[in-house]
Nucleic acid binder design. Sequence first.
DNA 1: GCGAGGACTTGGGCAAAATTAC
DNA 2: GTAATTTTGCCCAAGTCCTCGC
Length: 558
Amino acid sequence: EVVNVFCWLCLHFQHAGGWEEERSTDGSKWRFLEHKGPVFAPPYEPLPDKVKFYYDGKLMKLAAPAEEVATFFAKMLDHEYTTKDVFRKNFFKDWRKEMTSEEKSKITDLNKCNFAGMNEYFKAQSEARKQMSKEEKQKIKEDNERILQEYGFCIMDNHKERIGNFRIEPPGLFRGRGDHPKMGMLKRRIRPEDIIINCSKDSKHPKPPPGTKWKEVRHDNKVTWLASWTENIQGSIKYIMLNPSSRIKGEKDWQKYETARRLKKCVDRIRNQYREDWKSKEMRIRQRAVALYFIDKLALRAGNEKEEGETADTVGCCSLRVEHINLYPKLDDQEYVVEFDFLGKDSIRYYNRIPVEKRVFKNLQLFLENKQPGDDLFDRLNTSILNKHLQELMDGLTAKVFRTYNASITLQQQLKELSCSDDSVPAKILSYNRANRAVAILCNHQRAPPKTFEKSMQNLQTKIDEKQKQLSAARKQLKARKAVQRIEEQLMKLQVQATDREENKQIALGTSKLNYLDPRISVAWCKKFGIPIEKIYNKTQREKFAWAIDMAEKDFEF
DNA sequence: GCGAGGACTTGGGCAAAATTAC
DNA sequence: GTAATTTTGCCCAAGTCCTCGC
């Protein structure tokens, strides 16, 4: 498949800069598309009779539909959210819809339901899976591989491409992130009748499972998806699309970074412009200019409006409310400090105190006048207005381009600043990770500290102590210079590892690495400092960034 | 110009797989 | 060989931004 991956690359690279001409002008994404359709969730298997469910202390046998939904809840018993009111209320309401009229009349109070037997059964099942023999595990692995080979690939324009998510999401209880009003609702089972298939007319169309029909088979080459369905929680559409290693995703990714590089060329002009606009007579222009300043300086997301009560209450820049900022004319030894405290995407908290220019500060004070905590900070602005303005400043410019641009330029600057050609390979990689970390902090990519973090740090420290003892012993015994040096290197490597891990406790590097950092910067850095690319990108990442690995030389400049 | 719907990117968590330790 | 630990890939939710119909 490596060969295939590079075919389209070569095709384009031979005509460097010829991208625009080669892409079709009518907006079509492909000419030929053939695939086998999605893999459905396995049908529900009723529980054996030995698994008991009690209502109000009395044994009860549930019919399959209600039993299935009960098992979703029973499996989650150890999770905190089964104790949350909203979760329980939503679950119970949807569960009752699946009951027979007899079940419905009996089961009227979730608190009287005893799912413990079911819960134990599933725990035992998962334990049994772990205890399976090698042969049994091997068999499962082979079955999965067969399914992958059959359904996990498609043909798009002469190339066999990996599909990203060829399995339909199984039914279950919706969780959502943060304080979600719909947590606990039943995510229903998707059937072939719910699925729209997209493929080319002249391809072999996928067959629905025996006795079923697709909702529709269409041939729309203006879109990239192979199949879609509408989910029942938010009513939104879900798609089956290609893997990041595919041509269609790779080209788009490349294009994204090229747009960010175009921003680099005119960012000074744009910055001067919004600084001028802080002085505008028009309120809407001042708001737009201050918001853009935050997006640029703090890498905030655009912040679209959200339907109230449908999702968790989170905000981005344009949707910030009065309650999300505090202004301090003086704080410690700094002047004009803005304190941000709000929940962003995925209900991740954004907290930052940042000194701003006097003019920005005065503007913010103005925006806050006569407003309540729940009012919009930028009441004359939304993402559509902002993006229209940005489009006028540069072709293809939107709010998110600033995030991409600032992330990538920060990586490049940090790498320049931190890398030292005399360093050992582990030390160089520490520098790389630190540069990556600076970006993750900028983008507020946080993670919960791993549950075993403390223990894992201790283990590492133990190893370091042992290595230190080993080193002094070797020195005392006047071991050969080479042997001592080897131990020194091992010790250094462990120490670097410990530093890296400690600094990374609450930082998630993955998202920026995968979505914000132009991979050509990393490829160039590897070439320049003699680091094998495998040390920076694992196999999947190398597949995703094949275009960049092929393209970038050591002198690449973002 | 706008609102709803549609398409596509971005996001953290977690289970499975891989690797290392014992 | 097995257990512990780390890494990887999957899952699917939650954003951004565009299109379409009026």
